[in-house]
Amino acid sequence: MFNPFEDFKEFLSKVRTLPLDRLSAAHDQIMAELTSGYGKLVEQELKSLVWFVEHNRVVEAYETAAEVIKNLSYDAHSIEDFCYVLDSGVDIPYLISGPAGIYVAALCNHVAEEKIVLRLGEMERRLHFLGYRLPYGKSLRIEGDTGNFTGSALQGGDITVTGATGDWTGAGMTEGKISIHKNCGRNTGEWMQGGEIWVGSRIRGLGRITSGQIYQAGEAITEQA
């Protein structure tokens, strides 16, 4: 009997992929790699079960983070997306905000782009250590609030926070500039050895400042050595 669909005998169906599907797949792949890298860092840091902010621990955590991200391919936009992955906690079994922030800082310091914008206003958590060791030539703009140790050990980079920062902002920074549009917490500029911190509104407390300058509402509030 004549088959009325004979003309489609040779039709080979193609799996249709929309451009968005391809973008989404690429994005998922990057997020999986970044999450895996963070997992390796956490695995290392979990040995002590409780994470203390000690200088050596921070340095070690940063070096581990720099090592695990060495071969990852990502861009500044992926870092912002990863912050939300961290915030959601869905794929992150152990969110420890210290190492998480150090990991994000390492990502910012090693990304190819010089200008990085993180729109974190929608995040429920505040990440610590954002801008840690940001090198000269890089600028980091954070839209929203950040946790403690923002811009600590800054190495010449330029950080802008459109919201407020927590305690120990700019701790141990050697050079560079941190601009905070709103408030910042206690121990601001602790062991600061150079650079500038500009605060738009209230500073809850200053740390022991070795060198550098802190401005509040445009006025210098530290004495120059």
């Binding site: 009325p4 669909f5 004979e6 489609f8 169906s13 193609k14």
Partner: peptide, 16 residues
């Protein structure tokens, strides 16, 4: 388009 052609190609096979 792909869905319609798929439907016609499947119909060919069912008919067979």
């Amino acid at each position: 388009a792909e869905h319609v052609k798929e439907a016609l190609a499947t119909a060919y096979r069912i008919f067979q």
